[in-house]
């Protein structure tokens, strides 16, 4: 346990061929316990999505974002105003287990980098990182140095651009490739193609639309096309005005709002 008080030694657990028994000293520090659970060695603060903590040892307090003694930390690291209701700050010292609907959990280290991720997949991050809403609706961007924890439906694969990926398989991307839409128009040309496009008769393969990435960086894919439950990113504030993607189109009171 990094930096924590170590009182007496426990036997390392396990024994008689039974399941592995963990205690605060044998739980991994900032690493996976099994593919579906992650153990955080908490000594300070972590940002968590609500309800992803399954158990903890030690003294940990959970503070909602938006009030309380951590105002300054939140101001420096959390820039997603309408998203705040979904996140909490865990503060204290101990070991904390995170999990999400028994999906695969992975941790990633960013070193003065950036990574954009689907909002429902992000579970937790260290305060060294700043969380911002991506320009692309439904995605969040982490900038800075530190560790974060993300869930995926099946194991995550890292691929390098140039690549086209299925929208449902995309988890996120790092280091600024250029995310854009790609349509297979050839398939939809001509009269027959037009009928196909409009009615779906004649067999659409369901793969006419992809996300395309080019440039230097990494793209993260999950191994199924089953999406995780979308987590509200909160829209852009309505007063953001024209020209801001998503402005006025999401969140409470949907519908365009101009000239506020």
């Amino acid at each position: 346990m990094s930096g924590g008080p170590v009182v007496g030694g426990f036997g390392a657990a396990g024994g008689d061929g039974g399941p592995v028994v963990y205690d605060p000293y044998t739980l991994p520090a900032d690493d996976n316990v099994n593919p579906y659970a992650f153990s955080v060695a908490l000594d300070g603060q972590w940002f968590l999505q609500k309800g992803k903590m399954i158990a903890y040892y030690g003294q940990v307090d959970f503070h909602a974002i938006g009030y309380g003694p951590l105002d300054r930390l939140v101001a420096a690291n959390f820039h997603s105003p309408l998203h705040a209701a979904d996140w909490v700050v865990a503060q204290g010292r101990g070991k904390m287990l995170l999990a999400d609907r028994s999906y695969d959990i992975n941790s990633y280290d960013l070193d003065d980098g950036n990574l954009t991720i689907r909002s429902g997949n992000l579970l937790a991050f260290q305060p060294g990182l700043a969380l911002k809403q991506s320009i692309i609706p439904g995605f969040l961007t982490l900038i800075g140095t530190g560790k974060f924890v993300a869930a995926s439906n099946g194991a995550v694969h890292f691929v390098e651009p140039p690549i086209r990926v299925d929208p449902q398989a995309l988890v996120g991307w790092a280091d600024c490739p250029s995310p854009c839409h790609h349509y297979d128009h050839a398939y939809l040309r001509g009269v027959l193609g037009g009928i196909r496009a409009m009615t779906g008769i004649g067999g659409a393969s369901g793969e006419e639309h992809q996300f395309e990435f080019v440039g230097a960086g990494q793209v993260l894919l999950q191994s199924t096309e089953t999406l995780m439950a979308e987590q509200a990113t909160g829209g852009v504030p309505g007063q953001a005005g024209p020209g801001v993607p998503g402005a006025g189109a999401q969140g409470p009171g949907a519908g365009p709002r101009f000239g506020r």
Binding site: V7, G8, F10, A13, P19, V20, V21, Y22, D23, P24, V33, N34, Y36, A37, A55, Y56, Y57, V60, L97, A99, R101, S102
Partner: peptide, 16 residues
């Protein structure tokens, strides 16, 4: 739902 994790509780290490 997902493999269970077994956590030991002792007098010095209560669990939440």
């Amino acid at each position: 739902d997902g493999p269970a994790i077994v956590l030991r509780v002792s007098a010095a290490t209560p669990l939440t």
